[in-house]
Design a protein around this nucleic acid. Structure first.
Lengths: 267, 267
DNA sequence: ATAGTGCGCGAACAGCGTTCGCATTGCAAG
DNA sequence: CTTGCAATGCGAACGCTGTTCGCGCACTAT
């Protein structure tokens, strides 16, 4: 029974070469994923791409699902990195990564005030999704039937990085007292007790801002999801980013924040 | 080369039995889909379920993808039926269907004013999605790589039924003059020229209300998508419907419509 | 030098989508 | 009623997939 993540010896030449081929394997799988999508990813194909036999692959992966899980965690980390860069983080602040450094287009002033930072996060979320559609489908498309990520596992840790990055502008706004949180959204009894993810969020996020975060994330995710999966492009092939900017501006007003100047509708 | 939809003779005993087994095949495929999901649906398995040989199935379907396409069209019709019932249509008003008649829970007064009807449509959208998660994944999850539905095909016709049902409350509000449409959303130059779907919408929808519809649909779809795919339930397993109600109410206010009384947060 | 273990491979099995050729059956024209 | 045709279903087969097993090699630690 091979162990995907933790070879018994963490140092020594054997371990380093193992880590290296594991990275190469994931890189090959990622390449394959970007061509054929999550449902079309074939173990034998990434084995061919890596010059390895299909059976040998099982020294590094315990199943096709395990490989997909590893790619999911990597995907969340990549998305989180892009978000953090869009929010003004320097590349040195990011955890070490295996992919090319994230680059976000000049879609917003990364060092502006809170409302603009929320817009920047939203646009970065869209940007990553549009430029990584197959990975977006892997993260947010049909879940693998019957699979539930272990709460303490690396997948959840990577997910929560995305969550906290998206939450950061809201947290700042709340600390600055600029955010008007609807009392309806504060009332815990409306949404019921928090679930399993709760302990993973920064302590003061969950009770007060959790529902608000989910609401904002849902609005953002809906526009992006419909665009990436090809439902929005039918009507306005060129206007998806503009539509998202409008939606973000209205959400800002809805949250009591000052909307950025309306001139932001033109890229 | 079999023809999925149009047997040359539309009457005669041969044709009726053919139609019947085609319906049985789709029913078996739907059953299978609900158990294993879109990516796990196997032609051989639905053949076994129907007591047919795998090869014989190809007299009715030209590929696995063709069967999925048929299920997609059926799914859109089913969703559209549920939406129309939630909007007050009597079962006789619906086009003839092959499935059990749609039933929506008493989540809203179906005959109330426009704001409540918009809420009813949104809640029905969520209700269908939550109770048909695998079909939701089929309709709105990762698209089949490389597949593009023909614009004049039955899939697009079924899709546009969903679109017009969702648009109806907005259309009514616009006709009543209750809807305040942001001039930014009217400006075509913001979103660019309309795309392929445009001629399928009712003529006065697309230019004026198209962007507004997309915005509202995106917000709705985001909340539902995150819930169905298991991303919202982690934080508030019980509160997804309440969160959606809050989101819908805020969107109503955002559109200039009167929000329903805040007492609607308790199911 | 030797024992042991991590590593990769070839072969194999079951299941999948899909195609081909053959039998059977229902229908329509003579 | 008979004859011919097209629609229909099936068994076998091909190439692909995920996964397992057992072997041999190479590196590591003693």
């Amino acid at each position: 029974m091979p162990d995907t993540a933790t070879p018994p010896a963490t140092s020594g030449r054997r371990a380093t070469v193992r880590r290296r081929t594991w990275l190469e394997l994931k890189a090959a799988a990622l390449e394959e994923l970007r061509e054929v999508g999550p449902s079309g990813l074939a173990l034998r194909s990434v084995a061919r791409r890596s010059g390895m036999s299909p059976a040998g692959l099982y020294r590094y992966v315990d199943s096709r699902e395990g490989l997909l899980t590893a790619l999911i965690a990597d995907g969340y980390h990549d998305l989180a990195d892009h978000l953090e860069v869009a929010l003004g983080a320097a590349p040195e602040d990011l955890p070490p990564r295996e992919r090319p450094a994230p680059s976000v287009p000049e879609i917003a002033d990364r060092h502006a005030g809170t409302p603009q930072r929320l817009v920047a996060a939203g646009l970065a979320y869209r940007w990553w999704s549009v430029t990584h559609p197959k990975e977006f489908g892997l993260l947010f498309g049909d879940p693998i039937p019957g699979y539930e990520a272990p709460v303490a596992g690396p997948t959840v840790a990577a997910m929560s990085r995305v969550g906290t990055a998206l939450a950061r502008p809201l947290l700042e706004a709340a600390d600055d007292g600029v955010l008007r949180v609807d009392p309806q959204l504060r009332a815990t009894e409306v949404l019921g007790p928090p679930g399993a993810m709760d302990p993973l969020l920064p302590p003061h996020v969950a009770p007060a801002l959790g529902p608000l975060l989910l609401l904002a994330w849902g609005r953002l995710h809906g526009q992006v999801s419909l665009e990436v999966f090809g439902h929005h492009r039918w009507l306005y092939p060129e206007g998806c980013e503009a539509l998202l900017r409008i939606d973000l501006a209205r959400t800002l007003r809805d949250l009591g924040l000052v909307a950025p100047d309306s001139g932001d509708a033109a890229p």
